[in-house]
Design a binder for these strands. Structure first.
Length: 324
DNA sequence: AATGTCCTCAACCGCTGTCGG
DNA sequence: CCCGACAGCGGTTGAGGACAT
């Protein structure tokens, strides 16, 4: 027996929300702010459980949610982050502030998984049968390759999503969200993140408004965005491909730091590294195994935090912030 | 036009983690 | 420390639309 339901089942409405219900919910939250969900059904008269209200808000009505097709850039980020983090949709969503974890999860399950599988078998059939290679690792390589070759774009054109699948009602909720624009900017932070979201970044809608922290330390979000930019992903892919395809490659180009010497040490080219990016100035020792490619810089970068290589002040700057 | 099948995604379910009394 | 309430997360479902026959 699990925990009893969050609310009495009797008299509770389930299924799709109506525009009227949305308006009631949005109006209430507009007045009282998100949170204290238990009181929402009581105070609004909605025949919904508190959990349903919360989900409706966080996954659909919340201002700042971007709907519609995922851009190739978002797609690339999702693929790469999924390969790195696994099915940690909330963590992945924190890097795409305008997307909900539900959206990303759905997009992954309905589009990207198939897309990658197809692409993977097309470019590297033996990988699919290689049981010694983890799926995530395979996908990581595939994602990099596909990005480097621009093939995701091509694939996207072949697998074009059916546009405008959202109903007319969806557009009406979009209008609701638009009506709420501006309000969230002045609303209080509704919640704090749990410890399980240690990878979370500032997922607020006002990322662009944040000042770069003192000391020229860029936010982790911006940094990751930079790392995951097409150019860098292309370089990562080139680097990884050379690593995978040639077991005896010479100096390998590291997209972020410079060249990778044969012993795995990265030789920094300063012009590639922003001065403010002290973290990236560190000499990074990569794995030099010939059976597995060395950790990409992104992987290293993500692992750095858990390895405690960032001092406390930096951790404060990089620590997760509240999401909306 | 009718029917069957496939696909998408909003919503739900069940579980875990956190927090306050 | 225990317990209950609640928030958050990931997996799953099913209604409805798109597409194929």
């Amino acid at each position: 027996m699990g925990r009893p339901p969050c609310c009495e089942k009797v008299g509770i409405k389930k299924g799709p929300w109506t525009p009227e219900e949305d308006i009631i919910l949005v109006s209430y939250i507009q007045e009282h702010g998100p949170g204290n969900w238990r009181s929402v059904p009581t105070n609004t008269g909605l025949l919904r459980c508190s959990k349903s209200c919360r989900l409706r808000w966080t996954n659909y009505l919340r201002p700042g949610i971007k709907r519609g097709n995922f851009t190739p850039h978002e797609e690339g980020m999702i693929i790469h982050l999924q390969a790195l983090l696994g099915n940690k949709w909330a963590a992945i969503a924190s890097y795409l502030p305008q997307r909900t974890d539900n959206d990303i999860k759905n997009y992954w399950n309905t589009h990207l998984k198939k897309k990658l599988k197809k692409f993977q078998s097309a470019i590297d059939p033996h990988m699919a049968s290689d049981s010694t290679t983890s799926t995530s690792h395979q996908l990581n390589i595939v994602s990099r390759r596909s990005l480097s070759e621009g093939s995701l774009d091509n694939m996207a054109s072949h697998f074009t999503l059916k546009n405008n699948q959202s109903s007319t009602y969806a557009s009406s909720t979009a209008n609701i969200s638009r009506l709420l624009e501006g309000w969230m900017r002045s609303s209080p932070t509704p919640k704090t993140l749990s410890n399980t979201n240690h990878l979370k970044l500032n997922a607020s809608d006002d990322l662009q408004d944040q000042e770069t922290p003192a000391g020229n330390l860029v936010s982790r979000h911006e940094e990751l965005e930079s790392i995951l930019s097409y150019e860098n992903l292309n370089n990562v892919a080139s680097w990884d491909r050379s690593t995978c395809d040639s077991t005896q490659s010479d100096n390998k180009l590291n997209p972020r730091c410079g060249r990778v010497a044969n012993d795995g040490e990265i030789i920094h080219d300063d012009h590639l590294v922003p001065d403010h990016d002290q973290k990236n100035k560190q000499i990074i020792r990569c794995e030099s195994s010939t059976s597995a490619p060395p950790l990409s810089f992104l992987e290293k970068w993500l692992l750095d935090e858990s390895a405690g290589q960032v001092d406390d002040d930096q951790m404060m700057e990089l620590s997760p912030m509240s999401s909306v």
